[in-house]
Design a protein around this nucleic acid. Structure first.
Length: 664
DNA sequence: GTTAGGG
DNA sequence: CCCTAAC
């Protein structure tokens, strides 16, 4: 019914102090005031109006939409859109006709295309964080509203909500602990989708969660732009950096917004507070969906923690990849699992098309379930979709057959992380066919038809967009560059195909494990297998390379050169097996040192992951290993006999080289 | 593109 | 395994 875009107001990272509760420095205050003035917009006014409307709503038995999509007039000030309430009322009547069960986002975009906060003044915001910034956060309150209405507690609950919102606005800004009810509900939703994420690592959650929340970050910079789909209703949401004595949730630890460091940081904090909050409210069922659908509930904090810890243990560095990814997924649409309400306009705008080359029927489409609820009863105007999980796009991984299961896991994890870190976009398919025209409406596409929803699919696809690059670049000024994700797609190192879904939902994890098919094509350097391997390799070339869509390929060069040293993932370590060493020694004995390309071609042609530089390096270490005492050696022991041959060959060819050079 | 060598 | 200089 109502798109509740919660707004986060940040003022140079400081809250707006209603009183001198904490002795804020006068400097800070002055700075804040100044920046607000600089912005030619009184944030207080805006907030006050929001709060006012919420208060008004509190007296009103209906849910109120406050349109925050704002127009900037000539003077740069912000006005509220006029038609917000009308829209809302129209929606409300729809509501009544479908038993309060159909909720959908109400977007201002079609009706008021100019009402975007993207109109917000000046790029300066991007550079100078001291200016009051407004960031859309999520439609969390809407969920609350929807859920609560469904629960039949609409009015009472709404009062709470509005109260919370009220408390959240600066004018009442004394207690942030109370504000997050809406968010909490949403987060609870999210928890189900991400039970596998360590609670202490909220950034990982950002990936999908943040996507929806970060629609305001389209340009990679907070508050720079709200593009289409920016919703109507502001729920003043704010993270507080201090605990307040009167807090109704004394245990809540909401984190502060210090001066903006990075989006990821911000989100991390947001989520950290969210999830800690959720964990504390462990008793509450997460979902009371309007459709009565059952979803796992989180009654036990411990349980949730455990699940989260045990799965998806992504190293910090990797996890940070998610940040960029989340931001890049500015569609505001992807949401793994849980209910997603979207107006048609949103849908058509937000779903991106993929290149033809990527169109494959097996591309993770079926991992999604889409449902329509009550659409017909609502006059067919809204389609309700539930995306249970997303399948990670097809991955190609190369790993030697001698690798351990552990390293396989890590490799897969790396690949997944890399894909996510490289940015994702959503593809929409209907009946196995990609829907490419973003401008089509759901009705035109046929998505609104009940019978078709079962065949509606969403895919996560590697995303390549200038905004992503820009985005990462924007991050680079704040985040250590080593943590900046880069394109995960490197055709040169991608050989091995792993089929199977990596659903993000724990429910699916077990079953999907069985789907893994690992084809180890080129891990065996032995010349014996050459003929067989060759054929397979050819197949691979046919299979994998075209698999890379134009877009993915297109984005590679951009990232590769510029940031390679900093953001390119290091190749995984693949220790040489004794067999490989044997092969190498044999080849070097024959060809001599210094002809590594020949060695490669002759003995390791099928081991794509072994470059001639690798072979050269390995020889180097072999020589070193042979020279040190066995006690000092590490790793898989190389037979002494082999090492002796290494020494002999090395001595021989060293001598040989000397002779040839002397002869010249 | 290869090779050699330092890191 | 990465990086780079030198060829």
């Amino acid at each position: 019914m109502v798109l509740q875009k919660s707004l986060e107001y940040r003022f140079n990272g400081y809250q707006v102090p209603a009183t001198a509760r904490r002795a804020r420095s006068t400097t800070r205050r002055a700075k804040f005031q100044r920046t607000v003035e600089d912005n030619q917009m009184c944030a207080f006014d805006l907030l006050a109006s929001i709060a006012g409307k919420l208060l008004q709503e509190k007296r009103n038995p209906t849910i109120m939409t406050i349109d925050t999509s704002s127009e900037k007039d000539q003077s740069g000030s912000v006005k509220e859109c006029q038609n917000a309430n009308k829209l809302f009322k129209a929606e409300l009547s729809d509501e009544g006709s479908c038993d309060n069960k159909c909720f959908s986002l109400l977007s201002s975009q079609t009706n008021n295309p100019n009402c975007y906060l993207s109109e917000f003044p000046d790029p300066e915001i991007d550079v100078y964080p001291g200016i009051a910034s407004i960031v859309t956060s999520s439609n969390s309150l809407e969920r609350v509203v929807a859920d609560k209405l469904v629960d039949g507690k609409s009015q009472d609950e709404m009062e709470n909500i509005t109260s919370n919102a009220k408390l959240d606005s600066p004018g009442y800004a004394e207690d942030s602990c109370c504000k997050l009810d809406g968010d909490t509900s949403e987060v609870k939703d999210e928890l189900h989708k991400f039970e596998n994420v360590p609670i202490e690592n909220p950034p990982a959650l950002i990936n999908l969660d943040g996507i929806a929340e970060l629609s305001g970050y389209n340009d990679g910079i907070p508050c720079s732009s709200f593009s289409k789909g920016c919703g109507n209703v502001p729920v003043v949401s704010r993270d507080d950096d201090e605990k307040i004595s009167g807090c109704s949730h004394p245990s809540s630890k909401t984190k502060s917004f210090r001066p903006i460091i990075s989006i990821g940081d911000r989100v991390r904090k947001t989520l950290a507070s969210k999830y800690s909050k959720v964990a504390q409210e462990s008793k509450v069922d997460i979902l009371s969906n309007s459709d009565g659908d059952f979803k796992p509930t989180c009654h036990s904090k411990k349980y949730c923690y455990k699940r989260q810890r045990s799965q998806m243990n992504i190293p910090l560095k990797k996890r940070k990849l998610f940040n960029c990814s989340s931001v890049s997924n500015s569609d505001g649409f992807i949401r793994s699992g849980g209910i997603y309400n979207s107006p048609e306009s949103d849908m058509s705008h937000n779903t991106s098309c993929s290149s033809p080359g990527r169109m494959r029927k097996d591309r993770g489409i079926e991992s999604l379930e889409a449902h329509q609820h009550s659409a017909s009863r609502c006059g067919g105007s809204h389609v309700k979709l539930r995306i249970r999980s997303f399948r990670v796009p097809e991955l190609f991984i190369e790993i030697p057959e001698t690798a351990t299961i552990g390293s396989l896991k890590r490799t897969v994890m790396d690949a997944v992380t890399a894909v996510l870190g490289g940015g994702l976009r959503v593809g929409v398919s209907l009946r196995g066919k990609k829907v490419r025209d973003d401008s089509k409406t759901l009705i035109q596409t046929g998505i609104s038809l009940d019978s078709h929803l079962g065949s509606l699919g969403f895919t996560l696809e590697p995303k390549s967009s200038p905004s992503l690059l820009h985005l990462c670049a924007a991050h680079s000024s704040h985040v250590p560059s080593a943590e900046i994700p880069q394109s995960p797609i490197r055709p040169a190192i991608i050989h091995q195909r792993i089929q199977g879904s990596l659903d993000m939902l724990p429910d699916h994890q077990v079953t999907n494990l069985g789907n893994f098919v690992v084809n180890d094509y080129d891990s065996t350097p032995s010349p014996i297998n050459t003929s067989v391997e060759k054929g397979r390799t050819d197949y691979k070339a046919l299979d994998t390379v075209p698999e890379m869509g134009e877009d993915e390929l297109a984005m590679v060069p951009v990232l590769q050169k510029s940031k390679r040293s900093e953001i390119m993932q290091r190749r995984i370590r693949r220790p040489f097996s004794v067999e490989e060493v044997e092969t190498l020694v044999h080849a070097v004995e024959k060809l001599g040192t210094g002809r590594w390309r020949d060695v490669k071609i002759r003995a390791f042609d099928n081991a794509k992951h072994r470059t001639y530089v690798d072979l050269k390096d390995k020889w180097k270490t072999l020589v070193h290993t042979a020279r040190i005492s066995p006690q000092q050696r590490r790793g898989e022991p190389v037979p002494q006999q082999l090492l002796n041959r290494v020494l002999i060959a090395h001595a021989y060819w060293s001598q040989h080289h000397q002779e040839t050079s002397n002869a010249l």
